[in-house]
Design a protein around this nucleic acid. Structure first.
Lengths: 172, 172
DNA sequence: GCCGTTACCGTACATTATATCATTTCTACC
DNA sequence: GGTAGAAATGATATAATGTACGGTAACGGC
């Protein structure tokens, strides 16, 4: 079996630190190129998001991490939500509507319409490119007289690792 | 142009009372056939849902309607959520994840994997069948080693009526 | 009738998200 | 460098959405 172009699900033992470093580097680059300001808070939230492995994480979880070890004033919810809003706008993170959660973007450099595969068992979220799928959806919409502007496409199921586990055992 | 099999977006002046009556009749029928109990509360919530026209509506909005005119004890949130859970399970309603809202099902009798078209302007939600789209998504997922169990597919954009309105004017 | 099962209901609470306004920081421009 | 305007942040309060849990009533087999 040959390698696929887009390795949607990273190997369990992949070098995640490298993922994070690369994603942060790309984020810096992207923001610089656009004149967008990747401020300290925004960068920190992105780091925290990426630190979760390839899982979706709630805004309040990020807030807790952000405040871990903070002695005096703690950050309030709007801090995280504003940072996330920025990251999503810049394509550095995505909102997973069906989970009310967020995930760091796997390929921030691409200009893509992302679709997501969400593992019911381990919570890993993979991103697939699927230009074609998006196109087909827009086309189906157009047949109904509808002009599609954006789309939320989130499949829930079992990732390669989890589907091969025995039914009872938990993967986490 | 010939009529499409599934009229996703109903005409503005269609006989909505007939939609509601039909949907309720089908709901009764479906529940009877399955031995599921369409109790008073569940039926009432379905009515309220359908009464909103073809728009998605939040659980708390339904709760308000449910309590309109109720003199003594008012119903609490779980009442609505439980009813909605039942209706969704039975395919009589759908949850719109990107809106955190619910919509009455247009074709409860079909056994379908629904996809939604959400108008950004007037809030109307249409349902398209798209077996093929669902199939393609499952296939794309499978190529990533992912077994899809369910999918959320929600396109946001402009419905036939709203996209032809002048940009500034509001349709509602 | 008795008892286990199932569905139902209400209280209280948990989680997710935003409005608002004051303050600080940054940037462009002179 | 100084300054005006824009952008970002901080802080408080609250809105909107969703659920855990425990009690109560209906149902069905024996």
């Amino acid at each position: 079996m040959r390698a696929v172009a887009t390795a949607a699900f990273p190997a369990p033992d992949h070098d995640h630190a490298a993922c994070v470093d690369q994603a942060l580097a790309v984020a810096e680059e992207v923001c610089r190129a656009r004149g967008a300001r990747l401020t300290a808070v925004r960068r920190r939230v992105l780091e925290l998001l990426l630190a979760e492995g390839h899982r979706a994480v709630g805004a309040y979880h990020l807030l807790d991490r952000l405040n871990d070890g903070a002695s005096g004033r703690k950050a309030a919810p709007p801090v995280v939500y504003r940072a996330l809003e920025f990251l999503v706008e810049q394509g550095l993170a995505h909102r997973i509507a069906s989970l009310n959660a967020f995930v760091g973007c796997a390929r921030p450099q691409d200009d893509h319409r992302a679709q997501f595969l969400i593992c019911r068992r381990c919570g890993t979220v993979a991103e697939i490119a699927g230009e074609r799928l998006s196109h087909d959806l827009a086309e189906a919409a157009e047949r109904a007289g509808f002009t599609m502007l954006t789309a939320v496409v989130e499949a829930e199921g079992l990732c390669p690792r989890c589907r091969d586990l025995p039914p009872e055992e938990e993967s986490e």
